[in-house]
Design a binder for these strands. Structure first.
Lengths: 250, 250
DNA sequence: AAGTGGTCTAGACCACCTT
DNA sequence: AGGTGGTCTAGACCACTTC
């Protein structure tokens, strides 16, 4: 009924979480291994259910563990894809580049689902950047190995692409950028603005994100050679599925 | 003692959290505003303390709200700095670039604290990339307006920088990169590998991060003109304090 | 002094997964 | 059938902030 008279400096649930985190980060518990469950923690430490849950919730919110209903709590894995920002400048040019983080994009193709194309009134920021109140919008979701990894929304100035293949489902060989080129507005420069944050609920659903998984938000603006913005592309990435790489010269 | 016979499709705590999130994202509740507290939610919805707490914890773990002991739970703000990856290629070159996200780096200087310099045995990954088992390490933390925003650790091949100003506290005009230049190894190419994840506990402490705040991890490798890696710089950024910008050509 | 969030106990019913 | 995590109740003591 009464807890120990002098509360220990760090709360019980936190010390338990620390112990488990150590086991995970040290590799003692490996990817996919099962953590001690609520009942096990209650018995081992003589604590109440809520306290055991709180300990596990720490690791879950840190993205180190994933709960599976009716089964247990498991160590989470990190197997990223590699996304290249500026491919043309990539390491092949000066060779010898060594990657810090492994990734395994090899051979696994993207799948596109939920493609949607529509003409819309632009949100404030998009309208400002594209200098156009009306835009054509292409929405899609990318999956790898059947698991969603990215949502992407492209915006084009309506006047620029009206009636072209850019607003059709099948954009033809070379895709949207080739069509923009046909129009005399081939993308020549890119700006990517990037931030990370916790996902909103609809993003959690669409990307099937476990708790403790941030998203990376990329706002990419494409400019034609004469400096006209021709596309804004907003991407929401599952941070557990990606390593981003940017290469550039001094 | 008994809850309603047919449990509602979505749990109570989640519906409350949804309502509050809506209020935050719609701007009805603004930056720094106080959310209804545990007692208020208990009274308004006729629920137990733990349920009210659970509702608030959702928003806290989403990074939308910050709890303040003895005071209340408040709407969190996002006022990022802007970090430029490839400045030389930046938008000024072709003009007209419009930023999607506001940021206010203007005039606010970085402060460096906790500078540490040491000779160490390199971790496996660093040793592999730098092709050197022994490294000199420079650690420091950057703050803006007295609030920590970034931790940074630079690694140099020991043989390359031994006895030079690179391993001294004061690196002189132009800093470390200028000294590498003096040695005939001026950085000419950069690769940045970037990911986002929830912070580890020591990062939470050192960056003073509220719950629900991811970190952005950047591993930056600098190569000299002839392709030799001369520095690896690992940066841990508070994701709520940064927008990253990369500019490049097609 | 009163109110707030932080921690903890000891129960309960439920849906879900494994066996 | 039994174990697991998900939700919820009704209390308790505490440290801290605000007034």
């Amino acid at each position: 009924m009464q807890q120990s008279p002098v509360p220990p400096e760090t709360p019980i649930y936190r010390r338990i979480a620390d112990r488990l985190r150590e086991a995970i980060l040290s590799g003692e518990l490996r990817d996919g291994d099962r953590l001690p469950g609520e009942n096990a923690l209650m018995a081992q430490h003589g604590i109440a259910r809520a306290t055991a849950r709180q300990a596990l919730s720490v690791l879950i919110n840190e993205g180190l563990a994933v709960p599976k209903r009716g089964s247990g709590v498991y160590v989470r894995q990190f197997r990223p894809l590699r996304r290249h920002g500026s491919r043309r400048l990539s390491q092949e040019r000066w060779g010898r580049g060594q990657a810090i983080w492994d990734s395994d994009t090899r051979g696994r193709p993207y799948t596109v689902d939920d493609m949607q194309i529509a003409r819309e009134e632009a949100e404030e920021e998009i309208a400002r950047v594209l200098d156009s109140a009306e835009v054509w919008v292409r929405r899609r979701r990318y999956s790898v190995d059947g698991r969603p990894v990215q949502m992407s929304v492209s915006y084009f100035p309506a006047a620029l692409v009206e009636g072209t293949a850019v607003v059709r489902e099948d954009t033809g060989p070379g895709g949207v950028y080739a069509r923009l080129g046909d129009l005399g507005h081939a993308p020549a420069h890119f700006t990517e603005e990037l931030r990370a944050r916790m996902p909103h609920p609809h993003e959690t659903v669409l990307l099937d994100l476990p708790a403790g998984t941030p998203v990376i938000v990329i706002m990419r603006t494409a400019y034609s050679a004469n400096g006209i913005p021709v596309e804004v592309n907003e991407m929401i990435l599952d941070s557990a599925s990606y390593v981003l790489q940017y290469d550039f010269d001094a």
